[in-house]
Simulated assay, not measured.
Amino acid sequence: MTPLPLAALAQPAPSDRPVRVVVPLAAGSTVDAVARAIAPGLGRATGHPIVVENVVGAGGIPGTTQVVKAARDGLTLGMISSNHVINPGIYKSIPYDTLRDITPIAVLATVPLVLVVNPKLPVKNVAELLAYAKAHPGTLNYGSAGNGSTLHLAGELMIAETGIDMRHVPYRGTGPLVTDLMGGQVQLGFVSISQVAPQIKAGGLRALALSTPTRSPALPDVPTMAQAGAPRYSFDAWIALVGPAGLPKATVDGYAAAVKTAMDSPEARAAIAGQGLMVLDKGPDTAPAFFQSELAKHQALVKQSGATLD
């Protein structure tokens, strides 16, 4: 394969220099899994070795800071998630501008969330859940992976769209949340499909609906929230590839083409299926507008939730 033209940079980079892809989340996360799955294909397409590096902490801010402060030589990129547009509302200050200090390259995939309930809750679908919540206001607890997390905001959107009254219970990560969902300490929550598919299959949790506008092949029998009784509900978590602000257009276009090639690799297809993701095809022409709209939507939800982390 002929490498794509990434060397049209301010200072052309030798092809033996590695490209560093910073993942501002923990190893083993969905974002990390996608980054590592596309790395081989990205390397083949660009002719550069690809090194995935996890820089964790503070909702992804330290890792993203390294990306936005990197040289504009195309050798440092970031694989970010919806946290990027949530953080400005839940932290008093962050050391970069969410929109101005990045160059969007591609929005790779959306992460469908599934609304699950403890099977002891006497509801079998969203309509029954809404009826139960309205008959028992303030008695339902919904869990999340933490204040201001995508799982928290997915629940807040449900409250906003349906008018029900639920209490939020934040956990320190998805693992403890799933444990307490199965134990009945919290009755419901939105969780990524990959985190609860085994529990759903085994009957430990009941799946009611998906957060996304379309159904997922990973759970083909589970309707969307819109189909199940909340017609205006739509919430997508997502994964995107970005660079520091000011990347040359030739570099951005080269990476966008390389990502498309890499996403079609066997490694990427397997990771996408395994994580229950759905591919998005938003390149450098449409990604900036997507980021702007997602920032506005998530900031409104953060304000409604009152979430803050410092």
Rank of each mutant, 00 (worst) to 15 (best):
F190R: 04
I200Q: 05
V169S: 12
A228V: 04
A226Y: 03
K201W: 00
L157C: 04
V186S: 07
L219Q: 07
F190T: 00
L177V: 08
A218P: 00
P231C: 06
A197H: 13
E156H: 09
V191P: 00
Q187P: 06
A207K: 00
T139E: 15
S211F: 02
P217A: 08
S149E: 11
N141C: 10
G148E: 05
T214L: 11
P217R: 07
P220K: 09
P170Q: 11
L140R: 05
A230D: 03
D165G: 01
Q227D: 11
V191S: 07
P220D: 05
P170W: 06
V191D: 01
L208P: 01
G204Q: 14
Q187F: 06
A226R: 11
L205P: 06
R206I: 01
A228L: 01
P223L: 03
S234L: 03
A226H: 05
L208F: 01
I193C: 03
K201P: 00
T214F: 10
A209S: 02
T139S: 15
V178D: 03
H152I: 09
L181F: 10
A209L: 03
G189H: 07
P137A: 08
G155M: 04
G143L: 08
G143I: 09
L208W: 00
E161N: 10
G229E: 07
K201R: 15
T212Q: 07
E161K: 15
A218D: 04
N147K: 14
V169N: 09
G143Y: 05
L181H: 09
I200H: 05
P220F: 06
I200V: 15
A202I: 02
V196I: 12
G138H: 07
A209W: 00
S192D: 13
S216Q: 01
G204K: 14
I193Q: 01
D180A: 12
G163N: 11
A197V: 12
V191N: 06
T139R: 15
G189F: 08
Q195D: 15
G148C: 08
Y233M: 07
Q185G: 12
Q195H: 11
L181V: 09
T179I: 12
E161W: 04
S216I: 02
M166D: 01
Q195G: 05
M166C: 03
L151D: 14
N141D: 13
V178I: 13
Q195Y: 11
T212A: 09
G189D: 10
G146T: 09
P170N: 08
A202G: 06
L157K: 15
V178F: 02
L140D: 02
L151N: 14
N141K: 15
A209H: 02
G146E: 10
T139L: 14
R167W: 00
S194Y: 13
Y233P: 02
L151A: 13
Q199K: 11
D165V: 11
S216Y: 02
R206K: 15
L210M: 03
V169Q: 13
L177R: 05
